[in-house]
């Protein structure tokens, strides 16, 4: 009897596993398109490190990761670009009446990389550190000493309610891999509740580097082939609750097949 019940339970679970999508939802907005042209000048050929930090307001040890990355920022300056991603479930669920920092793009990255533990930090999407992420700091130092395979620079300006972004790219090493350009907006100085490993729940914890939106498609837009010096331009209208004065634009180049980030840059919105 138990076996029959188990098989029937399996049947019910399987029967539930079928998605249905309404006609008007067959396609969804996939982020801003990128227009490509030749860049007038090469960007500064400097290698930067890109860190995706996975966090959540109910993760007591996440403030430790914030402290570690703040120290790293102090050490490496703008050679380190950090994007904090609010985990979609569990410790990532916001407290009631608190801002929800979960994003579609962040959730897609989180799921793709199989993030199950908070805090976690992903260096250039190649090395994942979970829990105590301090071991990553010297590796960041080593990674930014490498000669860049591509250089990238970014500028962002307000144009009415929209933000216009210009990313200049120079490919410095020949590669058969298809590269993609991803752009995101991150916001600093966001104040909302956060569990803390020493102080319990802090109501006015200051969150920095929070991913607010992936502006391009979640996995970026393909670079056109055959060009080594190019400019990508795009524009988007930020949501009203994003304070542009506290925000940065982050752009990064990654290999389409492996998702590995090869270089990145960030800038304030002018």
């Amino acid at each position: 009897m138990k076996k029959t019940i188990s098989l029937l339970a399996a049947a019910l679970l399987t029967l539930a596993a079928c998605d249905s999508i309404e006609t008007e939802e067959y396609t969804v907005y996939d982020g801003a398109p990128v227009s490509w042209s030749a860049a007038p000048a090469a960007p500064e050929a400097v290698q930067r490190a890109y860190v995706e930090k996975y966090t959540g307001p109910k993760c007591t040890n996440c403030p430790r990761a914030d402290e570690t990355l703040d120290a790293a920022h102090h050490q490496y300056g703008d050679r380190l670009v950090v994007v904090s991603i609010n985990h979609p479930s569990g410790q990532g669920i916001p407290y009631p009446n608190e801002p929800d920092m979960r994003t579609d793009g962040g959730t897609a990255w989180d799921k793709y990389f199989g993030i199950t533990f908070l805090p976690s930090a992903h260096l250039n999407r190649t090395e994942l550190y979970s829990g105590d992420i301090s071991a990553m700091i010297p590796i960041i130092g080593e990674s930014i000493q490498n000669a860049p395979s591509a250089a990238i620079g970014v500028q962002a300006t307000k144009e009415g309610s929209a933000v216009s972004i210009t990313a200049d790219i120079q490919l410095l090493q020949a590669s058969a891999a298809t590269l993609t350009l991803t752009a995101a907006i991150i916001e600093d100085s966001l104040v909302y509740k956060q569990d803390h490993y020493l102080e319990g729940r802090i109501d006015d914890y200051v969150h920095n580097h929070m991913l607010r939106k992936v502006i391009t498609s979640h996995w970026g837009r393909d670079l056109p082939g055959g060009q080594t010096l190019l400019r990508g331009t795009l524009s988007f209208t930020p949501d009203a609750d994003i304070n542009l004065d506290n925000s940065h634009i982050v752009v990064f180049l990654s290999e389409k097949a492996t998702r590995r980030v090869i270089n990145c840059a960030s800038c304030k919105i002018q």
């Binding site: 596993a17 079928c18 998605d19 249905s20 939802e25 396609t27 907005y29 996939d30 398109p33 498609s217």
Partner: peptide, 10 residues
Amino acid sequence: ENRLNLPLNV
């Protein structure tokens, strides 16, 4: 500027 909204369970 759209992508497909894919059913994950078929």
